[in-house]
């Protein structure tokens, strides 16, 4: 009998939480497969750049949405 090892994301979720928690206006961070989704209250250009800088090298890329459009974000693991 063989058991396939689960494919775990290489993202350090604790570090992601620590990086994003201080930023106001982020309502949810969700891991969908290997993609990290950031859902925030609305567009705030300064905050949006702050998010990219805070994530730094923790992820190569991420996805972003607003609360009003969170319906387009696939189900996944709530990280924050």
């Amino acid at each position: 009998m063989s058991s396939a090892a689960p494919v775990l994301p290489s993202i350090d979720l604790e570090a992601v939480r620590a990086a994003l928690r201080p930023i106001p206006g982020i309502t949810e961070v969700r891991l969908v497969g290997a993609d990290l989704w950031i859902i925030r209250e609305g567009v705030d250009v300064a905050r949006d750049y702050q998010i990219s800088h805070a994530l730094g090298d923790l992820v190569e890329d991420y996805q972003i949405s607003t609360v009003a459009r969170r319906g387009m974000v696939p189900d996944g693991l709530r990280v924050l």
């Binding site: 949006d48 750049y49 998010i51 990219s52 800088h53 994530l55 730094g56 890329d61 991420y62 996805q63 972003i64």
Partner: peptide, 8 residues
């Protein structure tokens, strides 16, 4: 990170 923010 600025480039990535602009891309987003």
């Amino acid at each position: 990170w600025d480039y990535r923010g602009l891309k987003r």
